[in-house]
Amino acid sequence: MITTPPLLAEPFARTTLDFLRASVSPAVANHSIRAYFYAEHLADRWNARQHEEYDPRALFFAAILHDLGLGDAGARRPDRFEVAGADLATEHLRDHGVDAATADRVWEAIALHTSTGIAERRGLLCRLVAAGTALDFGVDPDPGAEHVTDEVAADLHARHPRLNTSSALHAAIVGQARAVPTKAPVGSVARYLVKTDDLGAPSDIPMRWGD
């Protein structure tokens, strides 16, 4: 099993988790929590905790809040959900006294978490958040390594159920983009999902552990 990161017992973590759950759907909240568990798991597997860039608080904030833009507050903003979420997360951190340098790193990791090929080159925090998020859809950052077995995933799903994660995220991203077209600029995940929907094409979101 993947052990619960001790940081979750900290008061700031409980405050941020309450903020997350009040801001997004239960499916998105559970996905965000699992992504954080996976990111911390990868930090162990990659021996990243000794890296000079490893910051457990920044990793918690970035992973937990990476899909904040898919909530109602994000839907009201004109930017793509990744950027809207990064802005909202930064506002939350500023309101709770987090230093500007940490908030900026968190902003970058959230804004880039769907930018495959870019996030991995923008430092450890961006890499861990992008990889942890992808692992929740069954995409291993190191093909063939199987960082997460089906048994490990089942344990985490029991603690934080999937609740039709893929469908929920798809519906939120596409729904926002149709309501506010500026949220789906060329090259974005939102634009891709809207176009595949319009063409009646099946989604290629991985389904290793079901919806």
Rank of each mutant, 00 (worst) to 15 (best):
W46V: 04
D18M: 10
A86L: 07
L156K: 00
P143H: 01
G132N: 08
A153S: 04
D79V: 08
Y192N: 13
L42V: 12
N164P: 11
V24S: 06
V180H: 01
P181N: 08
E146Y: 12
V152M: 14
I205Y: 12
Y38E: 07
T114M: 14
D18V: 13
D44N: 05
L93N: 08
A171E: 07
L112N: 13
P11A: 02
T196P: 10
A43D: 05
A22L: 11
T133V: 10
R208H: 03
L8P: 12
G71F: 09
L42E: 04
G132W: 08
Y36N: 06
W209V: 04
L135P: 10
G69K: 07
F37A: 01
S25T: 13
K195W: 14
A43N: 02
D18I: 11
A63Q: 01
D204R: 08
T149C: 02
L112H: 15
F81E: 02
T165M: 12
G175Q: 03
H51T: 07
T15I: 12
L68M: 05
I118A: 15
A9Y: 06
I173P: 06
L163P: 08
P206M: 08
I205V: 15
T182W: 07
A63D: 02
V129W: 08
V24Q: 06
M1I: 04
R178P: 10
T90P: 12
T16D: 02
D95F: 07
D99I: 07
L163K: 05
H51I: 13
P143W: 12
A134C: 09
H66N: 04
P161D: 05
D155W: 09
A134L: 10
A145Q: 15
E40Q: 14
E108R: 14
N47M: 12
R14S: 04
A119E: 03
L169G: 06
D72N: 11
G123I: 14
D18A: 15
I64G: 00
G175A: 06
S166N: 12
H170Y: 15
T182Q: 03
P26L: 10
R105T: 14
L128G: 04
L193G: 01
A177Y: 13
E91T: 15
G175M: 08
G210E: 00
T165K: 04
A201E: 06
D198R: 05
W107C: 08
L125G: 05
D140H: 13
V139L: 11
V148C: 07
A177E: 05
D136K: 10
P143I: 09
V28E: 00
S115Y: 15
M1K: 02
A48C: 05
L65G: 04
S203L: 15
N47W: 06
D136L: 08
D67Q: 06
A201C: 00
V180E: 01
L68Q: 01
